[in-house]
């Protein structure tokens, strides 16, 4: 199959998946007891009966479920994600406002996890029974076993409360003097703890994976050949072995993307990071159906895209997939 064909097939699957995500989630949210009128009233310390009835009528919550579903799906078909009941703002605006923060968190933590994870994995693979290897195994087990919210809180206690090095939360200082560079430094300063927290799980995963995959590759014939022809050990390691053991890493990193997105929700809540996760949490609690739906729609979309990109990257780095 050519690249074009595969791409077409993937995009087709993606569309079907998106529609399924829409219908399933809309049903789930509508079936849940309570509605946005309850949450708005809760927020306001109560509301008069006429006000509640007005809110329900205004957002069509008094209409039958199938009508509501139809109204929503037909709007989304024209790429209109609707209007947030709770924030009084178009959902697309809300999502675009929050998306950069989440993407920054997700990508920076993935880059950290992949580079450091690979490095540790390679170091461990050089001496599989050595001290470094044991440390890496221990660290990765710990990182994998500790829930993110817990390790996040531990980091806050350590580096905000006991040793006040980092800010307590948020994405940037509210009042900033200085230009682009100063702002970037400020955001990086706020990003550090949440990024490390989110990276910790995946760092564990990737280092284990690299170690296992390196050990496997190091035992193969062509590595023996390379060594036999007198190639320097470093060259054998990084040029031949590492390159070939990256395949599984890319696959897993791509597949894990959806998990990272959901991990980000928790990390955002712990660190008060103003991203999609915080918005998702708030809008679920507020029963703000259009916003929840918009976020789910958007995240499904991003996950599908990343999966397609992973496929393509895999074909680029591994000729065997290309030919099969």
């Amino acid at each position: 199959m050519g690249l074009g064909q595969i791409l077409a097939k993937r995009v087709g699957y993606g569309l079907v998946l998106l529609i399924a995500v829409l219908i399933l989630n809309f049903t789930l949210i509508t079936v849940a007891p309570g509605d946005v009128a309850d949450s708005i009233a809760g927020d306001m310390g109560g509301a008069d009966a006429t006000v509640m009835a007005e809110i329900r009528e205004r957002y069509g919550l008094d209409k039958p479920f199938l009508l509501q579903l139809w109204a929503y799906v037909s709007k989304v078909a024209f790429l209109d994600l609707g209007y947030s009941y709770f924030y009084n703002t178009p959902v697309t605006t809300l999502i675009l406002e929050k998306l950069p923060a989440t993407l920054l968190l997700v990508f920076s933590s993935q880059i950290l996890a992949i580079t450091v994870g690979t490095l540790l994995g390679v170091m461990a693979a050089r001496k599989p029974n050595g001290f470094v290897s044991m440390c890496v195994t221990f660290l990765s087990l710990f990182g994998f076993a500790a829930p993110v919210f817990w390790s996040g809180i531990l980091l806050i206690i350590a580096f905000v409360s006991i040793f006040p090095i980092f800010p307590v939360g948020g994405m940037s200082s509210a009042i900033m003097e200085g230009g682009f560079f100063a702002r970037a430094v400020d955001i990086a300063y706020h990003l550090f703890l949440p990024m490390v927290t989110l990276a910790s799980i995946y760092l564990a995963l990737y280092s284990r994976l690299t170690r296992a995959s390196m050990l496997e590759v190091l035992g193969s014939d062509y590595v023996r050949t390379a060594r036999a022809k007198g190639l320097a050990e470093n060259k054998v390691f990084y040029k031949h072995a590492l390159k070939n053991s990256l395949g599984p890493l890319v696959t897993v990193a791509g597949l894990q993307f959806s998990a990272v997105m959901s991990g980000a929700v928790v990390v955002e809540a712990v660190f008060n990071w103003p991203g999609l996760g915080t918005l998702a949490l708030q809008s679920i609690l507020a029963r703000d159906t259009p916003t929840i739906m918009g976020i789910l729609f958007f995240s499904s979309f991003v996950v599908i895209i990343v999966n397609i990109v992973t496929d393509i990257v895999l074909r680029l780095i591994d000729p065997r997939i290309r030919s099969s």
Partner: peptide, 26 residues
């Protein structure tokens, strides 16, 4: 209750015996 709206629906439709509640005098 899973969250506030779930509880609010139960209580405001009188499907309860007792509930803890917090109301403001304003």
């Amino acid at each position: 209750s899973a969250d506030f709206p779930t509880w609010a629906k139960r209580i405001s439709n009188w499907e309860f015996d007792m509930t803890m509640d917090n109301v403001f005098n304003w």
